[in-house]
């Protein structure tokens, strides 16, 4: 059996051993937020987190949606949730959104929001409670773990625009 394939190296492009053509794309989108997320974002602007409840299974879900994907029925109530919760899982990222490397890590986490049903989390970032920026992996692991209680830190109200980034990040808080 013969397996085909001509493998190229970066050098082949630099030294023009190979012909190629580049196509630059810049596509702009404007996504309608829809019914549920429009209300959610209005809430964020006011410093509030809203979930939505299902009349059939009783779940309170976040991010909010106009239908329950389990019961496949419309959800029917807005529920005001707390702006705090617990870390369901987290990681310590040294990679930026464009795959370039970061000198100091950031910490994405799934945060289960207080007041929503068990297991209902959202994706957000967790920052150091005083310095905001984390020094390194060891520092993160010494301060947070799965189950750690966290609270939202909001942008000042005049800077909020009705976006997920109206919450700057979450920070770990002491248990009462």
């Amino acid at each position: 059996m013969e397996f085909k394939g001509k493998s190229l190296k970066d050098r082949d492009f630099k030294e023009k051993n190979i012909l190629y053509t580049d196509w630059h794309v810049k596509a702009h989108y404007a996504w309608d937020c829809g019914v549920a997320l429009s209300k959610f974002f209005e809430g964020l602007k006011e410093g509030k987190l809203y979930g939505r409840s299902c009349p059939e299974c009783g779940r309170v879900v976040i991010p909010p949606r106009m239908f329950c994907e389990l019961c496949f029925k419309p959800t029917d109530k807005w529920v005001l949730l707390k702006d705090e919760g617990r870390i369901n899982t987290f990681s310590v990222s040294y990679v930026n959104t464009d795959a370039s490397r970061r000198e100091k890590p950031n910490v994405p986490a799934v945060i289960e929001i207080e007041g929503a049903s068990e297991g209902m989390g959202i994706l957000h970032l967790v920052a150091h409670p005083e310095k905001i920026e984390w020094e390194n992996l060891e520092e993160v692991l010494s301060m947070i773990k799965i189950g750690t209680k966290v609270k939202a830190v909001w942008k000042p109200s005049n800077e909020r625009e009705g976006a997920i980034t109206d919450i700057k990040y979450f920070v770990p808080v002491k248990e009462e």
């Binding site: 937020c33 997320l37 899982t89 990681s91 990222s93 959104t97 994405p108 994706l123 976006a163």
Partner: peptide, 19 residues
Amino acid sequence: FTERPLGVNLLWIFSLEMN
């Protein structure tokens, strides 16, 4: 709406699941 504005990368979801 709720995730990309945070500056995501693909590794996040795997490392979150792995952890």
